[in-house]
Design a binder for these strands. Structure first.
Length: 618
DNA sequence: GCCGTTTTCGGCCCGACTGTTTTCAGTCG
């Protein structure tokens, strides 16, 4: 875990413990806000603390003098005294209870103070013996809800990776489409923003037709894969179901594929929300988030004397008694997101950027064109893949089959990059086999035209940073992707030296999945990214964004840091199966989350430009 | 605990829903 992520976790914990201890809620949320700002910060925040001190920290939005001191304390001691004291004063089990849906800080504090609850077991005890009913605001219905939440919470909680989540959403949309006709319908939330994991899936449908609305609701709750309708949602405007993820792949035989029995396996909550057509833009903006982006947008509206909610952008008339849409006030903008952004002096902000990380100022209409961000990379810009495996190592496609599939998808170049000898389990090639393989790749060029097949290798970066083949052999390759595969628990300093050595190697073009992380499975290396991106820029090495949803490595914050440093990046599918090309969209979304401009992604370049760039190292 | 061309003190995003209440507190998204 990076220092930023760890520090953010500590501050978030401080926020939660403050709430539990009845501290001022604005003080608690200030800590949580700072945690999110730090987590999204592209550079190493501890380095900022050490090198530039308190004033530089206080320039970050949401960080004032007190929080700057805490960051400095953390960067110096690796801990924060305030957190230690709060932990000592609060039973650890209360944090666990606060995870249960329906139990917020106020209720948990009351249970602790009045009911002597300190963990899940003691909560269960006072439910069972009935004493919970004697506590304030604890009626029979409230207790029933807590009981149900406790039971359900055991199997929920886990977030879902982007790939399986997108597959569920696509399934839902495909099932509803025939019923809703051409009514606007889309998914929102962190899935639309392309985050690497999502908590639940929000599907929005806009219709003014009650018949369509009822039919969609009915089809939704009877869809294949639905294992239960979540209580609540009296009206048909919001329905929540639990749905089987039912997604398996070579990565997930251990933890995501259902064991025997049809109703088993991981589930995800899917919400269907039905709203009037006229509110669709405001609603999808609202449900897409992020929360921080929404808050910033509302503040921007207030600055301009307007009110923004999920029904539209309204003129503010200072009647605080009732929401504007309920008083029949006509919205200034509501049917499309673009109209709302424009009415607030902004260009349309792509969903991937909506994290309140500078996007509002960057997309302001009055920003001079010179300082406006360049066009972001998009899926249709990608014309090449530079990281793919064949049957020579652990892929399932022959060289020609791989090239044929790449051509079918509109690429002008495909690089064959099988594993090197140290990746024994993946069938890594000995130097002799690689020489023969290069010959086979050259021969395959005669069997298919309209696409360039490059001879390459995904070469292991060994634990000391040396590469898995001699320079003579590497020089015979058109493209070298150097990747770490083993020793992924090295400390940060060792990992930095290791990867730096690979970047400085004159025959390396691309640093493949630089940290080796697996989403929700393995943290991978945490090298000093500032050092790596500076070296990558200097040595003209492209940093890879591995598009597989299990990797998404580099991650969004690292990409932003690389972009700021002036690096070029590669978005590669790491193809083993033909379907792996479909993961490209996740790589592109992640790249966009890191603000990657089209021209800085080498996979968007035309063939002459890309091939010239590769040859510069030969 | 942060923040400021209407404030250095007194604010701090908005609305729906639920359950416990006689007017509202808490939670969620």
């Amino acid at each position: 875990m990076s220092d930023n992520a760890h520090l953010a976790e500590q501050l978030d914990l401080i926020s939660k413990l403050l709430e539990l201890n009845g501290a001022d809620s604005f003080r608690a949320s200030a800590n949580a806000r700072a945690a999110r700002a730090i987590e999204a910060w592209p550079a190493d925040i501890c380095a900022v603390a050490r090198d530039r001190g308190k004033p530089a920290l206080m320039e970050i939005e949401g960080i004032g003098p007190k929080l700057a001191d805490k960051i400095i304390e953390y960067s110096r001691d690796g801990r924060i005294k305030e957190l230690d004291e709060l932990r000592a004063a609060t039973p650890a089990g209360l944090l666990d209870i606060m995870q249960v849906p329906g139990l917020g800080p106020k209720t948990v504090r009351m249970l602790w103070q009045e009911g002597k609850v300190v963990d899940r077991a003691s909560l269960q005890r006072i439910i069972d013996d009935g004493t919970i009913l004697t506590l304030p605001r604890m009626g029979a219905k409230a207790v029933e809800k807590i009981k149900a939440s406790l039971a359900l919470h055991v199997e929920a909680a886990q977030r879902l990776r982007l790939g399986p989540a997108a597959a569920v959403a696509d399934r839902v949309l495909a099932a509803l489409r025939p019923i809703v006709g051409d009514s606007p319908m889309a998914f929102a939330g962190s899935l639309r923003r392309g985050k690497d994991t999502v908590g639940d899936i929000d599907v929005l449908l806009a219709t003014d037709n009650a018949t369509i609305s009822r039919a969609a609701h009915e089809a939704f709750i009877t869809m294949k894969g639905v294992t239960g309708v979540v209580a609540g949602g009296s009206a048909e405007t919001r329905t929540s179901v639990q749905m089987l993820v039912g997604f398996s792949s070579r990565w997930d035989e251990s933890d995501d594929s259902p064991p025997a029995g049809e109703q088993a396996g991981p589930r995800v909550q899917v919400d269907l929300r039905i709203m009037p057509k006229a509110s669709f833009g405001a609603a999808i903006m609202y449900f897409t988030g992020s929360k921080e982006h929404n808050v910033a947008m509302r503040l921007r509206a207030l600055d301009r004397g307007l009110t923004l909610n999920e029904y539209g952008l309204f003129p503010e008339d200072n009647s605080t008694t009732e929401a504007p849409h309920k008083r029949g006030i006509a919205p200034i903008a509501s049917d499309t997101e673009e109209a709302i952004y424009n009415a607030l002096g902004l260009r349309f902000i792509p969903p991937e950027l909506r994290e309140n990380a500078g996007e509002l100022s960057a997309f302001a209409l009055d920003t001079p064109p010179a300082s406006a961000p360049a066009a972001l990379v998009s899926l249709s810009d990608i014309r090449a893949d530079l990281h793919a495996h064949t049957t020579a190592s652990d892929g399932v496609l022959s060289i020609v089959a791989l090239a044929t599939e790449a051509k079918r998808r509109g690429f002008h170049t495909i690089a064959v990059t099988d594993h090197s000898k140290s990746s024994v389990i993946a069938g890594g090639l000995s130097p002799e086999r690689l020489r023969a393989h290069i010959g086979a790749i050259h021969a395959a060029r005669g069997e298919i035209d309209g696409i360039t097949i490059l001879a390459g290798s995904e070469v292991d970066i060994l634990s000391d940073g040396s590469l898995d083949y001699d320079d003579d052999l590497l020089a015979a390759l058109d493209v070298v992707v150097a990747s770490p595969h083993a020793a992924l628990t090295q400390d940060s300093a060792t990992a930095t030296k290791r990867l730096l050595r690979a970047i400085e190697h004159p025959l390396v073009h691309i640093l493949g999945h630089p940290t080796g992380r697996l989403v929700l499975r393995r943290p991978g290396l945490s090298p000093d990214m500032a050092t790596l991106v500076a070296a990558a820029k200097q040595h003209a090495v492209a940093l890879e964004i591995n598009a597989h949803w299990m990797r998404l490595d580099l991650r969004d914050t690292h990409i932003r840091q690389s972009v700021d440093a002036g690096c070029v990046l590669a978005i590669n599918c790491d193809v083993h199966h033909p379907e792996d090309f479909d993961n490209l969209k996740f790589g592109v979304q992640t790249a966009r989350r890191g603000w990657l401009p089209r021209e800085r992604c080498i996979n968007t370049w035309d063939a002459p430009k890309l091939h010239t760039w590769l040859k510069a190292k030969r």
